[in-house]
């Protein structure tokens, strides 16, 4: 059975920390950082990277288009 693993890369400096991606994530991967970026926003990051399935939901709803998504299929 194939298992899917994903990862997101957030353009931290362009992220405005709106949080719209959080409820969009089916596996609760994303959270807002306690640190801030250069504009003072608490940017989005993968808090639980192992849970990411690369579904792209977060990137699709991101108003600022700052999320890039990668996905691999693992054969066990």
């Amino acid at each position: 059975m194939a298992k899917v693993r994903g990862a997101i890369v957030v353009d931290v400096e362009k992220c405005k920390g709106c949080g719209v991606c959080l409820p969009a994530c089916p596996t609760d991967v994303i959270d807002l950082a306690s640190e801030v970026n250069g504009k003072g926003y608490h940017y989005a990051f993968m808090n639980q990277p192992d849970e990411c399935i690369g579904c792209s939901n977060c990137a699709i709803v991101c108003p600022d288009g700052v999320i890039t998504v990668y996905k691999v299929k693992l054969n066990r």
Partner: peptide, 28 residues
């Protein structure tokens, strides 16, 4: 291992410029 060009599934289209959007956070 995951973040490699061959595994890319979604990125912002080049038909959007790289200029940061002037909209408020979360704006549709």
């Amino acid at each position: 291992d995951i973040i490699k060009p061959e595994n890319l599934v979604y990125k912002k289209t080049d038909l959007m410029t790289d200029k940061p959007l002037s909209y408020c956070p979360g704006c549709g």
